[in-house]
């Protein structure tokens, strides 16, 4: 008579974690220079034990270039995907995510303003763009939700996405205006709009990990409330969920997490939209499982996209945002048609 367990089982965690680690290893080994697995393992062994590196091993590529980058990519993917899953549950809309809602373009506007006008905080060298990105992500979210609420009280229709798209267009024209004033920083600004994790450092990875631990952690805690929202906001209120507080908490966490991601990797579209969909096929709609599955799936998906971005046109490198959009759009169509073919379930 016992009910089914709602959360992830231990073996499922191990399975997903193993897949993520395997992907990470592949991504660290492959690139402009392919390093055999054996050499990579040797480099790690020596680095951990603090031994000297033999000259013939490409230690600096692995340790100072690829490892921090793969870590950043994995954490960004996990964060964006987690945000997407949370937003899709909260708004009961499978088309919602940071980029469709305009939150990430808002965040990049913040970053662009910080770059163009040289806004920074003296004690923290990187914090200028990061704080501005987070701030703008949150302001964007408030504007979009505020407008949507006025138009359509229920928030569950496409109104919110429509306003998000309009807002994104508005933001991109605002960015064009700023670019005309700060044309000397054009290259740096383009980076934000395309998205790339080239040149990521361990400090970046640490910032992402901290953001994921704090804000992602809160989202995981809110899994039950997200389930209630995914069934319906009125239903959530009727069963005793503090609707306003939950909504605000989730939205703040999502904007903060997206803000941090954008400040480090720029706008990376489609990850937050597609991977929760795929995760829902594997884990079902219950957020106690879905959030974990989405985070792992997002990390794996983005690592593979980054690998493609680095290697497909080597020595040229594609912006990761371009790869995610290309793969994401196709994957989305396939998922969508399959779902339609099988049942109404998604």
């Amino acid at each position: 008579m016992n009910g089914t367990q709602e959360g992830f089982r231990a073996y499922e965690y191990i399975l997903f974690a193993a897949a993520a680690i395997l992907t990470a290893v592949i991504c660290v080994c492959l690139g402009s220079v392919n390093v055999p697995l054996k050499s990579t393992a040797e480099i790690f062994r020596r680095a951990i034990l603090g031994l000297d590196m033999p000259k013939e091993l490409p230690a600096s590529i692995i340790l100072t270039v690829r490892l921090p980058r793969v870590l950043c990519v994995a954490l960004t993917g996990a964060s964006l995907s987690l945000c997407g899953a949370a937003m899709q549950g909260l708004l009961k809309n499978p088309l919602a995510d940071g980029s469709t809602l305009g939150v990430s373009s808002g965040a990049s506007l913040g970053a662009v303003i910080a770059i163009a006008f040289g806004i920074s905080f003296p004690s923290l060298p990187f914090a200028g763009t990061m704080v501005m990105a987070i701030l703008f992500a949150f302001i964007s979210l408030l504007i979009i939700l505020g407008l949507a609420y006025r138009l359509d009280f229920s928030l569950s229709t496409n109104t919110i996405i429509l306003i998000g798209v309009i807002y994104s267009m508005f933001v991109s024209s605002a960015m064009s205006v700023i670019i005309t004033f700060a044309s000397n920083k054009l290259k740096q600004i383009t980076f934000w709009t395309m998205g790339s994790l080239n040149g990521s450092t361990y400090a970046n990875a640490l910032a992402l990990a901290a953001a994921f631990a704090i804000f992602g952690g809160i989202l995981f805690i809110k899994a039950r409330e997200l389930n209630a929202f995914a069934v319906g906001e009125d239903n959530a209120r009727n069963i005793g969920v503090d609707v306003k507080r939950t909504k605000l908490t989730v939205l703040i966490c999502v904007s903060a997490l997206i803000g941090v991601c954008v400040s480090i990797g720029g706008t990376i579209a489609f990850v937050g939209l597609v991977t929760p969909h795929a995760a829902r096929f594997i884990a079902g709609p219950n957020h106690k499982r879905l959030l974990s599955a989405s985070a792992f799936a997002g990390a794996i998906f983005l690592m593979l996209c980054d690998l493609a971005a680095r290697t497909l046109l080597s020595p040229l490198e594609l912006p990761i945002g371009v790869v995610t959009s290309l793969i994401g759009a196709v994957a989305f169509i396939i998922i969508f048609y399959r779902a339609r073919g099988k049942s109404r379930g998604a």
Binding site: G3, N227, A228, A230, V231, I239, P285, N286, G345, A346
Partner: peptide
Amino acid sequence: VGYSFSVEEVVRLGRY
């Protein structure tokens, strides 16, 4: 309901 929750999952929410 937008997502394919099971009957039991929906009922269990009542215990929130």
